[in-house]
Design a protein around this nucleic acid. Sequence first.
RNA 1: GGAGGGUUAGCGAAGUGGUCAAACGCGGCAGACUGUAAAUCUGUUCCUUCGGGUUCCAUGGUUCAAAUCCAUGACCCUCCA
Length: 376
Amino acid sequence: MKVEFEKTYNDPKTKARLGKIKFNGKEYDTPMFMPVGTAATVKTLSPEEVKDLGAGIILSNTYHLWLRPGENVVKNAGGLHKFMNYDGPILTDSGGFQVFSLAKPKDITEEGVKFKNHLNGDKLFLTPELSIEIQEKLGSDIVMSFDECVGYPCEEKYMAASVERTLRWAKRGKDVFKGENQVLFGIVQGGIYENLRRHCAEELVKMDFDGYAIGGTSVGEPKPTMYEMVEMSTKYLPEDKVRYLMGLGDPIDLIENVMRGIDIFDCVSPTRLARHGHAYTMYGKINLKNNKFKEDFTPIEEECDCYCCKHYTKAYVKHLINAEESFGARLLSIHNLHFLMRLMNDIRENIKTSTLEEYRDNFLKNYYQKGGKADE
RNA sequence: GGAGGGUUAGCGAAGUGGUCAAACGCGGCAGACUGUAAAUCUGUUCCUUCGGGUUCCAUGGUUCAAAUCCAUGACCCUCCA
């Protein structure tokens, strides 16, 4: 079975949409947030916990699984679902982000990208065709095109050339993609340049992908710029296909970009911040390492019904984080993911009632109001 | 009783005449983190009214100058009787 998307509703006031991702007899509501499990695990959590938190799609990574344990190991295990015991939909990123985070400009050629294996120094060469082949062996449900995620700032000349190459890579990937039980998404690049974003989106749409992602955001640009980049991309994408904004997870970014027509998001933040001792709250992010929580025997959020908040206090979680006990990272990962899942649920409810802007304004007021509850 | 070794910031530990308010590690405090080379990284950590002040077991001494050399004392460790 393949992943299917159905858009069901347009917010008359904003560009927000409601929809459903259908997979394996189940339906998952969009807009949605996808937890990231780079190395075939959402760090510190079991698949059951991830599902109980309300997650639908989870994201894993081509580059990392290619290096370790190797795509053939995953294939021989019976595919990624069986290997990691997750029966919900799985999306694999193509390695395009690793072009941004690991490769140098000189390593990028028309044919593909040279990597130095960060584990043992081996020379590696990843191409659009190989990325697709690896993702087919992994057996994910949503396959991403191999793209170049370009940083900010970037001159128009380089960006224009990069977009053309990303388009050629998208075509090459699509040409070898078999599409047996998998769908393939194209990725819109183009940086801050509307002409390039438009061109990229239009060319991808001509190639007719199953869904479209927006990439190259949150690479150092100011938030208002990022929002513009999203607007100038969604504008040229078809209404009936799913839109995925890659790598965004700051709560306010989720709200703002749903209002710009995004259906799905992913981000490492909830789990990484958790491992670093931070918790999302409606009154801003808090750092449990801070001494002020040493004897704070209240939950992270009184009104939160996650496992962490129902059973444990800030003082306890702080103690675990300070003592480097892994249970602390687990509890905070549960809370942070629950927070984003609840946020997405609130967003969907407010789309239904056409109150998303009010929700946004109210959220902003609480979340960024310093001296609020989070700082007490 | 004899012979050595030692005592440095919250802790461990460098430093053996000036470039020392004193390396480094831990601990503490704070910050960062957005398609995960990230349970990681960065800053800070004697006091201060930011002018400066007071430190390296204690006291006294040598010297222009002492954590560093000398004397005495205290405490700790090892070995020999």
